[in-house]
Design a binder for these strands. Structure first.
Length: 493
RNA sequence: GCCCCCUUCGUCUAGAGGACUAGGACACCACCCUUUCAAGGUGGCGACACGGGUUCGAAUCCCGUAGGGGGCACCA
């Protein structure tokens, strides 16, 4: 176990959108760093220039900021170990692979893509690694001559061909691999740019990375990486491979693309989609921390400080965990309900604007307490409050006005009675409550049989915030107008 | 096909040989509260993959089987 100061890194490749799986890896690195008073470093692994996507860096940085995972070193903040973008470190890599070449620990390979394809066809069905090591013992001088003449080639690592290697993972323990199953992988591509394997080993060493916390998809390259550390004579960092995130069904790795559930709702997988839908940063962080990690047998709701305080690698699970959208919604609801009406209003205003609703902030603050316990995601807000901010209700189905066990003809007298009552009563929650109940009594009907038609007439929908508060906030004028409209629509029907 | 990893309620998990009649959370169901929907409260349904060992004793340790996942690129 390393006793060096804790320095961990999140090192994504900017090729696509910032996926929640990557975010979880970043979060664990962040929590581990903060828990141990260490540094959280961000490094951009852009050695794949073919798949490079400049937008991806923006998505990544914005995503990390949204989640509040501030990095101590990396793009935009700098640091003593820079540069933090791999394509800016090409000259550094060169001296290291040259060293390997000089020591005979790596070699040039001139096999063409066609040759490789043929090897693959031949060897793969036999369960053998693709490359047959045909240039492993090629004469170095001849290789240099061919390289100097400009012939395209790659550089491969020369790995042991027999024996075995045992590597250690903090989460999984010792893992043994037979060396003859390993391949002399490419460490420098024909364009002169190192592959991930080489660059990540050199950078982790040079950046004094103490612990590598990365996705589970890397366990099979662990022996390769350890061999590389050994070739350089470096001490490898402590390794920990985090469990993959599975689909909600528990079957298969979590989707790389967003889709829709059978009920039509979007199933986000990118961080910015979660943000757009209105998941709170704290809720996301809290929920994600629990995908693959747990604190004890009952504590689940934890704020950032608590998470940092309690996080430890020995409570990270080795088995894959599936993503549960329902549980995330529940967490978001918990954090939403903890907000003050003012804070909720601030969060919700942009969503209303985006939905084309011209909401007045003061009114929204009044409404906030009543939608707070009904909201799961911020983007839902317009469905709950739109009728407060529009002049004319969109047409609704008149049948909605009809309460249980009644018919259309029963409705006008009820609404008229409600209208007359509301025209006289003082316009606040308690007075409305008392007056309406008295009117209900006078008509000899059930409370719901009057409240339901009022709700539809005033809100235009079946499900809405509590009625008396709604009426109070809406104000007498609007309420009476909408009741009158309902009544006249019924009469024209 | 080959290599590696994993296996407790539908899902996330607690459990590190006796404290297990296996605990919590989400979801689901019922009831309470209630003007709708929620929120909240109470209760319920629901799991140690299977087969062998080891042991006085196994969810916990070992082996095998099955299932799941990851990897086998001039991608990371």
């Amino acid at each position: 176990m390393s006793t060096k100061p804790v320095r961990v890194r999140y090192a994504p490749s900017p090729t696509g959108d910032f996926h929640v799986g990557g975010a979880r890896t970043a979060l664990f690195n962040y929590l581990f760093a903060r828990h141990n008073g260490g540094k959280f470093i961000l490094r951009i692994e852009d050695t794949d220039q073919k798949r490079y996507n400049p937008e991806a860096v923006e998505w990544l940085l914005n995503g990390l900021r949204y989640l509040g995972l501030d990095w101590d070193e990396g793009p935009e903040v700098g640091g003593d170990y820079g540069p933090y973008v791999q394509t800016e470190r090409l000259s550094i890599y060169r001296q290291y692979y040259q060293q390997l070449l000089d020591q005979g620990l790596a070699y040039r390979c001139f096999a063409t893509p066609e040759e490789l394809e043929e090897m693959r066809r031949e060897r793969k069905p036999k369960g053998l690694p693709t490359y047959d090591r045909r240039y492993r013992d090629y004469d170095p001088n001849q290789a240099i001559a061919r390289a100097d003449s400009g012939e395209s080639h790659v550089i491969r690592i020369k790995l042991p061909v027999d024996g075995s290697i045992t590597v250690h993972d903090v989460i999984r323990g010792d893992i043994t691999f037979q060396n003859d199953n390993l391949e002399d992988v490419i460490i420098v591509k024909s364009d002169g740019i190192p592959t991930y394997h080489l660059a990540n080993v050199i950078d982790d060493h040079l950046m004094d990375i103490s612990h590598v916390l990365r996705g589970d998809e890397w366990v099979s390259s662990m022996p390769l990486h350890i061999h590389l550390y050994n070739a350089f004579g470096w001490e490898p960092p402590v390794m920990a491979h985090l469990p993959v995130i599975l689909n909600p069904t528990g079957r298969g790795k979590m989707s790389k693309r967003e889709s829709r559930a059978p009920d039509g709702r979007v199933l986000p997988v990118f961080v910015r989609t979660f943000e757009e839908l209105g998941y709170l940063s704290d809720a996301m962080v809290n929920y994600m921390a629990l995908v693959g990690w747990s604190y004890d047998d009952k504590t689940e709701i934890m704020d950032r400080e608590e998470l940092i305080d309690r996080f430890s690698l020995d409570r990270v699970n080795a088995s894959p965990a599936s993503w549960n959208y329902d549980k995330l919604d529940y967490f978001n609801g918990v954090y939403l309900r903890a907000l003050t009406p003012e804070a909720l209003t601030d969060l919700v205003m942009p969503y209303l604007a985006k939905a084309g609703i011209n909401a007045d902030r003061a009114t929204m603050v009044k409404i906030a307490p009543f939608i707070q316990e009904r909201l799961n995601v911020l983007s839902d807000v317009s469905n709950w409050v739109d009728f407060f901010f529009i002049d004319e209700l969109p047409p609704y189905d008149l049948n909605l006005l009809v309460p249980k066990k009644m018919s259309l003809a029963d409705v006008p007298p009820i609404l008229t009675a409600a209208r007359d009552t509301l025209a006289k009563t003082e316009f606040n929650h308690d007075a409305i409550d008392a007056a309406l109940r008295q009117s209900v009594k006078a008509l000899g009907i059930k409370a719901g049989q009057m409240f339901q038609p009022i709700r539809i007439a005033v809100c235009g929908k079946l499900v809405a915030p509590p009625l008396f508060n709604t009426l109070e906030i809406l104000g007498r004028e609007t309420v009476l107008k909408r009741l009158d409209q309902a009544i006249s629509r019924l009469e024209q029907n």
